[in-house]
């Protein structure tokens, strides 16, 4: 298998943890809430998901349990940041650290154990194509996250719910004045984001690399957060950002195996460097940010 085929075949799976977490965060941020606890929510989801599979519960139960773990942390976040109107940045960081601590605690006796992942499902016909065929052989979660991407894109573009979420994110005071229950809607958005972060963690620990190691999420939550900004809060751009990041992380592996005379540390840092550069370019376009940005992001709102 050539390097390019390897990248094409693997990039969707590599992108999925970022994509799931970023889609959840997109909904949260569109509603005007900044949840910086993503990394911790993913870590706890990963630990819980791994334990459920290891103890014989199967992958469906693992994803459900991981989703609930994410929702649990999201509810703590919502209770403090939405209910008690605490500072969202501070609460998000605290909940994130809590999630990482809990993941180390519950995962302690499972350190370095492995499990089996999920079988790959081939897309009939397309999977036999040369070079790109590998893209159409993916596990069920990858296929489902593509469906989720399309669903969220359509929700923001066509549905009333998407319109309402954008409205409460832009101007919560006005949304309340015309009769929307801003806090309740934000709560649901945060819960959704927590569940998605839990799924993202579960995918990373039970499917993509089916093993548990403390700290295995390794900053993926932060990258997902960056992707939401990098994608200027647009679903399509976030999808391509996740894909780019997945492809780059595989490309750095390919470069190492092919023995390029570049230090491996530099290659592994490549995806992060590219993300920073792209973020810098995107955020320098003030017009784009203002038109698609979320005006009330991170501000506490109380009736």
């Amino acid at each position: 298998m050539s390097g390019i085929e390897f990248i094409l075949a693997g990039m969707l799976a590599a992108a999925t943890p970022f994509l799931l977490a970023a889609l959840g965060e997109l909904v949260v941020e569109r509603a005007g809430v900044l949840n910086l606890g993503l990394e911790g929510m993913m870590a706890l989801g990963a630990a819980i998901g791994f334990i459920v599979v290891y103890e014989g519960g199967g992958h469906v139960a693992a994803f459900v349990a991981a989703g609930f773990a994410g929702v649990g942390l999201a509810l703590i976040f919502a209770g403090l940041a939405l209910g008690l109107r605490a500072n969202q940045v501070a609460v998000g960081l605290a909940v994130g650290i809590l999630g990482q601590g809990l993941s180390s605690l519950v995962g302690n006796s499972y350190e370095s154990l492995t499990i089996t992942g999920l079988p790959k499902l081939a897309f009939p016909g397309l999977s036999d194509l040369p070079v790109v065929g590998g893209m159409f052989v993916q596990d069920i979660v990858v296929w489902l996250s593509l469906v989720a991407t399309a669903a969220i894109w359509a929700m923001f573009r066509y549905s009333r719910l998407g319109l309402v979420l954008r409205a409460i994110g832009e101007n919560p005071t006005a949304a309340r004045a015309i009769g929307y229950r801003v806090i309740a809607l934000r709560l649901w958005a945060v819960v959704f984001g927590g569940a998605m972060a839990g799924f993202a963690g579960a995918y990373a620990a039970t499917v993509y690399t089916p093993l548990w190691a403390d700290g295995m999420i390794a900053g993926r939550g932060w990258i997902a957060l960056a992707l939401v900004v990098f994608g200027t809060w647009l679903t399509g751009r976030i999808f391509f950002g996740a894909l780019l990041f997945g492809a780059l992380s595989l490309a750095s592996l390919v470069a190492q195996t092919e023995g390029w005379a570049v230090p491996s540390q530099l290659l592994s840092s490549l995806p992060y460097i590219v993300t920073i550069v792209v973020l810098g370019i995107i955020t320098s376009n003030k017009k784009l940010l203002k038109l698609n940005g979320v005006a009330s992001l991170g501000e506490t709102f109380g009736p």
Binding site: L163, R166, E170, N171, T173, Y180, L291, A295
Partner: peptide
């Protein structure tokens, strides 16, 4: 509003990034 009271605010309660019809469809 259910009773039939409508209000036009001094500092408008419109959403700038949405279109006119989207703003109206919120209510």
């Amino acid at each position: 509003r259910r009773l039939g009271i409508g209000m036009v605010f001094q500092h408008f309660s419109l959403f700038e990034t949405l279109t006119v019809v989207e703003n109206i469809s919120l209510i």
